[in-house]
Amino acid sequence: MSTENGKGMIQLEGVSKWFGDFQALNAVDLAVDRQEVVVVCGPSGSGKSTMIRCINRLEKHDQGRIVVDGIELSDDLRNIQEIRREVGMVFQQFNLFPHLTVLDNVTLAPRQVRRWNKAKANEKAMEHLRRVRIPEQAHKYPLQLSGGQQQRVAIARALAMEPKIMLFDEATSALDPEMIKEVLDVMEELAESGMTMIVVTHEMGFARAVARRMVFMAEGEIVEVGTPEHFFTNPREERTKQFLSQIL
């Protein structure tokens, strides 16, 4: 599978999306390189989540093109499945499967989709659980764990499919303050390991430390894109300044 222009991993071109009469995305253009970490911020309702949910077709975009690792997203089910296999996602509400143990949560997709046998899936799963530092919880059920632990399991579950891209949709917003750090630490390590990531977050400290590029969205549009230094110290747009003054 060849990529269209060199090292590009994700391209969004003129992507628009409506919910009824409400336009959630307005001609969004964004290109993400291989191994790049992009942090998306903006006020609530600005279309951040909608944008990344379009990338793995949890939402269907109405206009424009989305290309992921050289595969253009279309209505073809096989094509969608192919993209979903390459894109891992972590949700605000964890969305772990409560009726399965931690280990089964992590091995389910590799066994069903990648067709790994049980031994291989378990071995890989334990590797990922060690990576997020909770191998000892493998046989528990999700609801027996704390929020931070659950979110780390969710990260391990996404990683188990060996995706090329990870999407984080406000992964720490539902966590108690003392648990945010343990999740951010895992995300930071993941970024350092060279994973291509799009992170929707309000954690500006994390953004400053990890982001290669910042994207600021408002009212369904990308208002400003830049390096963290530029973005935090010298933003161009009025709306960006206003937003930053409110949250910093």
């Binding site: 979903r84 296999r85 949700f91 969305n95 772990l96 499967f97 389910l108 069903q112 989709v113």
Partner: peptide, 12 residues
């Protein structure tokens, strides 16, 4: 969210 998480993992 349960269905979305499963879809995101590529399950049929």
């Amino acid at each position: 969210g349960q269905v979305e998480a499963a879809q995101a993992l590529g399950l049929s």
